[in-house]
Write a protein that binds this DNA or RNA. Structure first.
Lengths: 217, 217
DNA sequence: TATTATTTTTAGACTTGCCTAAATTTTTTA
DNA sequence: TAAAAAATTTAGGCAAGTCTAAAAATAATA
């Protein structure tokens, strides 16, 4: 069995690997886990010993197949619990991250599979993230970042890449909700902010920082 | 905030205190927590420093008001999660203890109160144990142990004092279920086993060990 | 490309919760 | 009630996961 802490490192490595090319760096992990680089190095040696990561000193890190399978198992648990918290207990999508962060470590496969049945096999969590399969694969979505689409394109908001309450509450205040349709009118050359039309009469500016955390299709 | 381990000690002290007169002993705690007496002593000193227990060296231990409040909070969480696991996810009452043992440490009061609402304010867990109130008091039940009632009395099985799968499965096999009515016919003077009638035509022997773990009213 | 700056690793130490072995206190029993 | 037994505590140590400070490796720059 793997410790709470090991599980969190695997999950974080997976998360960082999907958001940047190449190997995941020690410093990036230190920042994400709110620890120091020296602590990360210790843990990396441990995970490498357990064959959960490929690790060459000074060269960064990458999950092995087994490591990725485990990371996806944790992420599956996390996302199913988020669905439970929002759909069954009525929490807001901006309130559930920290609770799911604890619930994801409950060690019972049977529990997770029964939860999946109970929630009627959801495909996506409340933030639009796909829920990995029980066998440990991540469903492909084909979503793009709003910051990467062409001017004039009409799309639908399908998910978010950032789960902090601050970001999610900002979306709610500006009217950008999951499932919301919008058309990209123009991209400001100066600060890369976007003018998007969400109603026939209503358009608003979206910063580049927001746009690169919004997934659309 | 208190650690996972501290919470478990508080819960165990509460549990032992309700099952025996006087102070809870170091050895009893060591056995319940599957650790050694020396480890228990370490933790008792720590809990005493935090004013969660009254502790005099060699004299055993007793919860303070604050300690009892915290213990009941953990027990409340445990029992509510057990109700969830049985009623919503369809687990058997003999399967849920270990999962609830982990879920009880999830640190969100909001989560527990919403769970309570969602489960429609259950009064008892699947084993018939009363669920403590949000303010930290244990509802009185007036239940007696089956081993302590008079011959000839008719009663109803309301709960169990032992939650191990082995014990609960034994009950299921012998037909002793929660809510089941029975009449105590006689008590064997030799081994204190009980002859109980559960149907007009059906009577069976119940060992003293089983009888002192069955709560009736 | 030699030097500076940055990143990463090593070395040594701290905390929590646990252990074993030995010392101490309490309880039991002869 | 004194000796033996049992329970409890103390002393010293270990593993996990963290830290700071210093050393080593890599990357950036003059």
């Amino acid at each position: 069995m793997h410790s709470f802490t090991e599980e969190n490192y695997l999950k974080t490595i997976y998360y960082l690997a999907t958001r940047q090319e190449g190997e995941v760096t020690t410093n990036a992990l230190a920042e994400m886990t709110a620890t120091k680089a020296a602590s990360v190095t210790d843990m990396l040696r441990k995970l490498a010993d357990k064959q959960l990561i490929h690790y060459r000193k000074y060269q960064g890190v990458r999950l092995t197949e087994e490591g990725e399978r485990l990371a996806l198992k944790i992420i599956r648990r996390h996302r199913l619990w988020e669905v439970f918290l929002v759909q069954k207990l009525g929490f807001g999508w901006d309130e559930v991250h920290d609770m799911a962060e604890e619930l994801e470590h409950i060690r019972s496969d049977e529990l997770v599979e029964r939860l999946d049945v109970y929630l009627e096999y959801p495909q996506f969590d409340p933030h639009g993230d796909p829920i990995p399969t029980p066998t440990g694969t991540m469903p492909a979505t084909g979503y793009q970042k709003l910051s990467e689409i062409q001017t004039g394109t009409s799309v639908c908001i399908m998910g978010v890449l950032e789960h902090s309450p601050e970001f999610l509450q900002h979306l709610a205040r500006t009217g950008l909700t999951l499932g919301c349709s919008l058309t990209l009118r123009e991209i400001n050359a100066f600060d890369k902010s976007l003018l998007v039309q969400i109603q026939p009469e209503t358009a608003l500016f979206v910063s580049h920082d927001v746009a690169r955390n919004l997934l659309v299709a």
